Structures are given as C-alpha cells and as structure tokens.
Amino acid sequence: MQILVTGGAGFIGSAVVRLLAERDDAVVVNVDKLTYAGNLSSVASAQTSGRYRFYQADICDRDAMLDIMRQEDITHVMHLAAESHVDRSIDGPAAFIETNVVGTFRLLDAALTHWRGLSSDRQEAFRFHHISTDEVFGDLPFDSGVFTETTPYAPSSPYSASKAGSDHLVRAWHHTYGLPAVLSNCSNNYGPYHFPEKLIPLVILNALHEKPLPIYGKGANVRDWLYVEDHARALALVATSGVPGESYNIGGRAERTNLSVVQTICDLLDAKRPRAAGKSYRDLMTFVTDRPGHDRRYAIDASKIERELGWLPVETFDSGLSKTIDWYLANEAWWRPIREKTYAGERLGQVA
C-alpha cells in the first residue's frame, strides 16, 4: 500500500504516520503545510524508515496533490489536514472554510483524477478516507442519547460547520462519481504530541508553570475521550478495511465533564510532580466566561466499528491520561518551544 496522509505532522495525523511507518506492508507519504500546529519532530521516529516520505504542500493546491499522488502511486488517501480548534474558528472562521471545505474539495478533485487513471485492480483497491469529528452532530442532552452513524448533522460552531461541509462533499464524490470513499467521525482525542492550546495539554502545562487552569463556565460540559493511539489503530482499519460509502464512529466510551478532567489531571500531578509546601494543583483551577455556543455533551456509539472491523480501545481514560501526563513530563524539549512562541493575534498554549 502507498498511503498518503494529509496533515501528517499534526496531532492525530502524526500518530497515524508513526503507526503506519512500523508496518511492513505500507509506504507512508506525509503531506503537511506545516502551519502553527504542524511539527515534524512529532514524526521523528518515522523518518528513519525507508518507507516514509514527506512533502510540504497545501491541500488547497490541487495540482500539487495530484502530482504527489501520481509520483508516489498512491493507493489510499487518509485525509486529516484541517483547521481544528473551535475557539480559533470563532475568532477567525475564514481559514476553516478555506482549508476544511475548499481544501477538501480540491483534494477530492485530485484524488478523482488520480483514481480514474489507475488500472482496474488498483481502482478497486483505492480508498479515500476522510477523518471527521463528532462535533458535526451538534450536541446532546446531559442525561441521554449517543451519536450514531445515522444521527442528523447539526453543527454549532464555524469549525464543526466546516467539517460537516467537507463530510457532505466526500459523500457526494462517492455517490456522484463513484470514488471509493469512507468516512469516520471521532470523539475528543488526547495523548502525546497534542498541541498545547487544547484542554488536556493546556491544563498539564499551565499547572507545571503554576498558572491558572481555565475552565469554561461551570465545567459541566461533557466530552467522550479517546486516546490518540487507539484512534490511529481505528483509522488504519477504516482506511484498509472500511466499506466504500460507509461511515464509522470512533469513540473511547469515556464520558467526562470538563471539570472532572481538570480535577483528575490535578490529582495525578499531585502524585507525579507534587507542588511546594504540599499545595494541590486544584488550587489553580479558575472558572472563566463560557465559550459562545458551547455544546453541552458529546457521546459516541462505537458499536459499528467494534462489530464490523473488530476494533476496541486499549486504553481506559485513566490509563491513557496517566500515560499522557508522563509523556509531557518527559518531553519538555518538544513542548517548550511551542509554549515560548508568540504569534501576533494568535492564541497559544500558554494563553488562558
């Protein structure tokens, strides 16, 4: 297999690249624009493999994408490149429309041209795997319901609306042109190499620096958490074994309130890296003004991928969170340069 991973220097994409680079049956072609969240040090382990390639390119450049697909004789596209932070989408939605909607369209256009030029057996094997989010479904009541593959779309933020648009484009290219496409929608990821502005790494690193730990509203919003390496295994299964035209929900069956997540991080850090004078990291928790349009709850029903593709998460939330904290404690060389960068008008991990 010749697998093209877009956004392969990002958080989830790098986990996919690291996983695929360990396989003997795949060449991994990483395409990333290397914007603020792209970091090639996240795929350092793959760079020693003779089955790894990297191209710095923009998915909005249709001709560049087609050239790479043809040059590398691509058999699978795993499309992870996206603008992904809800807060950033509220501050500046234009980039989300450009990358997530227009970029996906241009990548689909390139993939369709490439696919049509393949031999019949290569066409049969080809897959376009679009990786999306549970946020396209909107939100759920606090006390009931889960997202399934047939849940109607009801995106709330500019980010989720842009991802919903890209999902619809992929389905349209499958139904209209016959492009062998599969989709997956995941719950909130966490784990090593997570960009430090997201909740879990932000709380870990703010705590280590004795900074406030910001919690939106009352911290009652609920998310289903998925360890990123479990997600990468699921994505590899969907890309190689998923049925064209189908979608697969991927979740960790680990619902937690945001307040509970922050409290658990504090308690683990109290044990792993105690504060001076016996203080608790919980003392740093600070409630801040809620995010506009903040969805109440997300919850994924992952029974389809479990039943049809045999995937199950390995990590519980507690085991995965403990591993994540250990990774950040041991990898300051990765996260410190990111925390120290300043971009005019852009938020970074050290900004509450």
Rank of each mutant, 00 (worst) to 15 (best):
M1W: 13
T6L: 08
G10L: 02
F11M: 07
A15G: 09
L19S: 09
L19T: 11
E22A: 15
V27T: 14
V28D: 06
V28M: 03
N30M: 08
G38R: 08
N39S: 12
A44M: 02
S49Y: 00
S49A: 13
R53Y: 08
Y55F: 15
C60H: 02
C60K: 14
D61H: 10
R62Y: 00
M65H: 05
I68Q: 01
M69Y: 00
R70A: 02
E72D: 01
D73S: 14
H79K: 09
L80Q: 12
V86N: 09
R88Y: 08
F96H: 11
I97N: 05
E98R: 14
N100W: 07
G103T: 07
G103K: 04
F105H: 14
L112W: 13
T113R: 11
W115E: 01
G117M: 00
Q123H: 00
F128D: 02
T133P: 07
D134P: 09
E135V: 01
D139F: 09
L140I: 06
P141W: 13
S157W: 09
Y159C: 06
Y159P: 05
S160C: 01
A161S: 12
S162V: 03
G165E: 05
D167F: 00
D167V: 03
H175T: 13
T176M: 10
Y177E: 11
L179Q: 06
L179A: 05
P180G: 04
A181G: 07
C186N: 14
N189L: 12
Y190W: 10
Y190S: 08
G191V: 08
Y193H: 15
F195S: 10
K198Y: 11
K198P: 00
I204W: 09
K211Q: 15
K211L: 15
P214L: 07
Y216A: 05
Y216G: 06
G217Y: 04
G217P: 03
K218E: 15
A220T: 13
V222E: 13
R223N: 03
D224C: 07
W225S: 04
D230P: 10
A232L: 11
A232D: 08
A239H: 01
E246F: 05
N249I: 04
I250C: 06
G252I: 02
R253E: 14
L259E: 13
K272L: 15
K272H: 13
A276F: 06
Y281G: 01
D283N: 05
L284N: 10
F287M: 10
D290A: 14
P292L: 08
G293D: 10
D295Q: 08
R296D: 05
I300A: 01
I300R: 01
S303D: 07
G310C: 11
E315N: 12
G320S: 03
D326Q: 12
D326H: 03
Y328N: 06
L329T: 04
L329W: 07
A330N: 13
A330D: 15
E332L: 04
I338Y: 09
K341Q: 15
Y343M: 06
G345R: 07
R347F: 11
L348E: 11
L348V: 10
